[in-house]
């Protein structure tokens, strides 16, 4: 390529920039002057920019600029506006629909599930756990065992009014303290505990008589838990034949339950949460998988 240079007229001595390194000089190919002026213009512009917009970092914070512009705040405001608008529309729709209607409408169902999930984390997770698996004394909402009924409507009612919450509409029904109240003696309690454990194939108290336990169960417990010990959601009496035990399934724990009774409280959320949120929670909890 270099040889292409016109051999007829040797090029004139090229201008250089006056810089030389190890005998290598740099040609002076003058840049257009507007290019230099553009550089100056951007420098001038930057001063204006520093004044108008956030620019310099300080020890704690930064120079905010007289326009008070913040990209982060702009985004937050936009997100907030969208959320407010969406919530307002969604809340109206949810508030106006029944739980059954919500579940029948795919769009509304999605909204309710999302709303319910958020509300669950804020209000319910403290007792029932972030993934609704509960713990001793606080029911697991993932499984299909429900003290007060597992239909969406029943779940909604339980959330709204609670259980033993003091609300006039709340679920009532206690597990009495049979031992403390002098109804059952220790050996009778051990026998009846061993009997109900045997219904789901679990070991009872060593040496306790299952026949005696069955007799006691029929006389004392069947009124609430039923003849077959399948429980009664009207009274919050749990099914004693399944492998799910709210207060533990060791013989000691069951004996303690019989002796001292249980009075777990589910607060009433009516008044604390709006109806749309309560319905959403019911849909969400039911949708965890265990709902009937």
């Amino acid at each position: 390529m270099a040889d292409t240079a016109n051999p007829g007229t040797p090029p004139a001595a090229p201008e250089t920039t006056g810089h030389e390194w190890d005998g290598i000089a740099e040609y002076n190919n003058p840049l257009p002057r507007w290019w230099l002026y553009t550089l100056y213009a951007t420098i001038v512009w930057s001063f204006g920019y520093w004044v108008a917009y956030p620019a310099w970092p300080l020890v704690s914070g930064y120079t905010g600029g007289v326009l008070g512009y913040s990209q982060r705040q702009t985004v937050l405001d936009e997100v907030d506006a969208v959320r407010r608008d969406r919530n307002a529309r969604g809340q109206t729709q949810l508030a106006g629909a029944s739980v059954a209607e919500i579940r029948a409408d795919p769009a509304l169902l999605r909204l309710a599930l999302a709303t319910g999930k958020a509300a669950f984390g804020d209000n319910c997770a403290a007792c029932h756990g972030t993934s609704a698996t509960g713990r001793t004394g606080y029911p697991n909402l993932q499984d299909d065992d429900w003290l007060w009924g597992g239909s969406p409507e029943e779940i909604e009612r339980t959330i709204r009014y609670g259980a033993r919450s003091g609300n006039g509409e709340a679920h009532v029904g206690d597990m009495p303290a049979f031992g403390r109240d002098g109804v059952l003696k220790r050996d009778e309690a051990e026998a009846v505990a061993s009997y109900v454990l045997s219904l789901s194939g679990k070991p009872g108290v060593a040496g306790a008589s299952l026949e005696k336990g069955a007799e006691t169960f029929a006389g004392t417990c069947a009124a609430c838990h039923g003849e077959t010990a399948k429980g009664n959601p009207e009274m919050g009496a749990p099914n004693l034949t399944d492998p799910i035990w709210l207060y533990g399934s060791s013989p000691e724990q069951v004996v303690a339950t019989v002796m001292n009774g249980r009075k777990g409280v589910m607060p009433a959320w009516e008044g604390r949460l709006d109806p749309a949120t309560i319905k959403s929670l019911a849909v969400y909890v039911h949708g965890l998988g265990g709902g009937h």
Partner: peptide, 13 residues
């Protein structure tokens, strides 16, 4: 010898 700067580094187009 360092070649002299023979012209401006910028020129009008």
């Amino acid at each position: 010898a360092i070649p002299a700067v023979t012209g401006s580094l910028y020129a009008a187009r």
